[in-house]
Write a protein that binds this DNA or RNA. Structure first.
Lengths: 183, 183, 183, 183
DNA sequence: CATGAATGAGTATTCATTCAT
DNA sequence: CATGAATGAATACTCATTCAT
């Protein structure tokens, strides 16, 4: 279970690769070549495969990172206790997605074999807290369920990304989506 | 502009290829091989490339067909004069998207070079009629704009497809989306 | 079952590839690269893979060809009715093996996944005829069984090839082997 | 010639690596990875290459060890004076080969660059003693020469290994081979 | 026009070997 | 000396596209 801690240079390379991969896949989609990732990271191709034995592993690792980031952000918001935190978070995630393909892949399976479902688990809990709080304070209608919220978020991210909504349209669209949750 | 009329067998082949391509790309995504399309259509690979000089051309043609289909359907609904026709159409499109990747590609560019924007034009008009009518009768809030409706539809289609929402979840999610448009 | 007949150029290429492959694998072992085979055959790499979708398929095809050759030769000898035909055939095969790795691979599995056993079937029958005849005429002891003959032939081929026996030694060794079969 | 004596742990590592390598190459053939050898030996890959600068060196070392083993065994048998010791030894070696690829590689070069000929020298002498004794006592025909015996042994080992003869077939085949040496 | 064989650049992955830690 | 991360050449296989039959 607990791997031995990585050597300093290895950890640095792992990080570099992840960063490069996120960039490359954001720019050219997940069909971009691993070689390009290696080039951008400034390492040899073998190094990429030493850290991530498979392209799918690399993709999964990117998603994991992103998931951790989002989950942390959601937890922070939840801790602050603002009843509208759900709306804030929702909008933030969509904003992020507008610029980064990867967010979208985190929220819904793509075509890749990466099993996202399991990875969304962490995010799910965070969203659940936000939703519960919003319901309790009446910011959201009582019958709105967690899976619907996730579905709407997924849809918005996909849309924002794939359709390339301009900022203004994006904001109005998200507003309409959130309107659907209000009492 | 005006191509010479195709020979009967050529026209039949063109149709077969389009049908086969729609199936194949729906099943395996746009990364499916052109060879597979040819196989399914029962023609040789050369024939596919004679009709569609590029894989992108083939994809574009599929979308064009789908666009025509949806536009027609929207116009029919508009002609019937039901104030809630917009909702009906919206739901229908999402249902279709749930089973067919291609709808999604019609509504938003992907990674392919296909210029969808121009293709959505026809659909745009049809949706505009539906929206106008819905606004006039008060089925939809006055400030809801056309681009928002398209954005929501795009998002829902992408979500339904990519996330593979089960029917129940799909219906509830679409309901929430439409709730956002109501007064 | 019955494939459509190949176009003339395709058949020519197929033959060229087989010849080239036999040469290359004889020279460098089965670990030689498919690219080298293509180069030697004067075709592009894709062509090799169009004819033989897998390296194993290519190897299998070579063996099949060789098997057919040997089986034919054995049948010819059997038809002539010489009681010592088994000895003649045995010696011939070993001579061939001395120069060509591939013979050896026909007679025994290697490390490759090629299922030789099934392929030897044809040869087996031919050898059986020769052995039966030899037993009937008393050229070979009654208790000698077919599998032993095959085993000895396998062994001799492997030895001749791998150890690179000089002609003189090869002949004497085969003589000793055959001595073991005589009454 | 005289290397500085190895440190205790270094000597232990060398031995471990040799044992592991013998196992691994027996199981997966010489194309097995050096990394796998390291893993099995419980050392890092660098350690393997420190002891054996090249994969070929590692293979050569294994063979050297095996050669010493067999030579010792042959000498012991020769010392005991049994006229049939040659047969016994022959059978033993083949039995060993049936389970261990490495024996085969000892007796004949393969595709590797290892120069086996020189290595067989020691074994040659031992076999010579056995053969001489057998000839003197009439257990073997007078005209049987040493190189033929070696060739037969080589052949049998290759056959037993590559063809995977079942025990029963193996015994009968060896019996036939030895029959060829008898008066 | 249709066919399907040929092309060849592109991709993920492996592995012997080197070298900084 | 041992470690194990980095290297990068090599390899099997795929696929859009071209073109001779």
């Amino acid at each position: 279970m607990s791997e031995p801690p990585l050597r300093a240079d290895a950890r640095r390379n792992r990080a570099r690769i992840l960063t490069a991969a996120a960039e490359v896949f954001d720019e050219h989609g997940t069909s971009a070549s691993t070689e390009e990732v290696a080039r951008r990271a400034g390492v040899a191709i073998g190094t990429v495969f030493r850290h991530f034995p498979t392209k799918a592993d690399l993709l999964a690792a990117i998603m994991k990172e992103l998931q951790d980031l989002l989950a942390t952000r959601a937890e922070t918001l939840a801790a602050e206790g603002d009843p509208k935190a759900l709306f804030t978070f929702f909008a933030q995630v969509v904003e992020h997605a507008a610029g980064a393909r990867t967010v979208v892949h985190l929220l819904a399976a793509d075509g890749t074999d990466v099993d996202v479902d399991r990875q969304v688990a962490g995010l799910r809990e965070a969203l659940d807290s936000l939703l519960t709080r919003a319901r309790q304070t009446g910011a959201v209608r009582a019958e709105v369920r967690l899976d619907e919220v996730i579905a709407l978020l997924t849809a918005a991210c996909h849309g924002a990304l794939a359709a390339g909504w301009a900022p203004d349209l994006r904001h109005r669209t998200v507003a309409r989506l959130l309107d659907g949750l209000r009492p």
